[in-house]
């Protein structure tokens, strides 16, 4: 059987060493850009302004009138699912506190876009 001639193995080893060090360097540099990118990705992904907007419009409309306008309710729910891909629902209860003649509106707002679920229990002042 032929004996292996391993004279040149160190060349191969050096080649590996160099390529591994390059690989590690590339990995570290790559990680550094990912940090800034993933932060802005999560900013884009989290529907903060959507949630704020929907809760704002519901409070402004239902909260001030003390009643849910049927037409506006269906507009919000149907447009949310069709244009924003989000399930939105809300209910409103009005409590009249007789001794002090206070009227409070309690609203439950639900938002779910498949990734983020948000529920708010809001009481008017």
């Amino acid at each position: 059987m032929a004996r292996l001639n391993d004279d040149a193995q160190w060349i191969v080893l050096m080649g590996f060493l160099v390529s591994f060090s390059l690989f590690f360097l590339a990995l570290i540099i790559n990680q550094s850009t990912i940090v800034g990118q993933s932060t802005s990705e999560s900013v884009i992904e989290f529907p903060k302004s959507d949630v704020r907007d929907i809760s704002h419009v519901i409070k402004e409309h239902a909260g001030n009138n003390g009643e849910i306008d049927d037409r506006v309710y269906h507009d919000i729910i149907n447009l949310s699912i069709k244009r924003k891909g989000a399930v939105v629902n809300y209910t409103l209860n009005t409590l009249h506190y007789q001794p002090f003649d206070y009227t409070h509106n309690y609203s439950l707002i639900h938002y779910n876009n498949g990734v983020t679920i948000y529920n708010e229990n809001w009481t008017s002042q």
Partner: peptide
């Protein structure tokens, strides 16, 4: 990128409908 805002207006939508409070995006 797309940004949206909910607005409540008193309008005929569509023009054949009665004028009432509507939520538009």
């Amino acid at each position: 990128v797309r940004v949206t805002k909910w607005v409540i207006v008193n309008k005929k939508l569509p023009s054949s409908a009665p004028s009432e409070d509507r939520a538009v995006l």
